[in-house]
Amino acid sequence: MGFLEKVPQLDDVIARLECAEHLEELQTIIEWLRDHYAVDDMVYHWVSSNGTQYGCGTYDPKWVARYLEKGYLRIDPVVIGCYQRFHPVDWKRLDWSGKAARAFMKDAMAHGVGHQGYSIPIRGPNGQFALFTMSHSCDDDQWNSFTELNRRDLILLAHYFNQTALMLEPGRKPEPTQPLSPREVETMTLLAVGYSRAQVAETLAISEHTLRVYIESARFKLGAMNTTHAVARAMARGQIVV
């Protein structure tokens, strides 16, 4: 990690994601993210209700080809364990006990897939289902620390990534993001002019607890990673005027 200045910042990645005009650009972005998080692999895998797949990521192309050729979609415990779910899943918690699953894992590892993994399922519109996955080789403690520390950012990123993928796919539309409500606009405006959270809460006559939920919600609607980023994006989009 001695080359921090070379590692792209998350805000840049998000900006790049928003500007992406072709699905191929998602490949560059996911490589950036892999470097940012310093994990072996990062993969986005979309499965439609009609079984079509789209993916990008850093796995060895040989493994991707093999996965498709062998029809591993039907036995991959990650896909089976995450399908129709909405909670993030550590691969250790999946059922790898079946013969086919064990053979699959062996084949994956032979192709350089790490034995640790964390997958975030995403439910899109019309039965769209996608997985955003990090994989790595390290011990359990290291992996637990990594996922504990980063899981919320990764969950947000997974959803932003999927929104872009849906936008770029012909004939698809992401679930429309709800507009900021007037209360959220007020919140972001007051934060933008430098009010502290306590001052914003007092001005809006709400608790700081309620304010935290407003900010959380506004952050997601604005496609941002943190509050500062959310304020900047709200201003850039003209959703708040200071």
């Binding site: 959803h159 959220e184 939920v213 919600s217």
Partner: peptide, 11 residues
């Protein structure tokens, strides 16, 4: 909810 439609994978 004060008209706020909460929306986030973390809510």
């Amino acid at each position: 909810t004060g008209g706020v439609a909460f929306q986030s994978p973390l809510i």
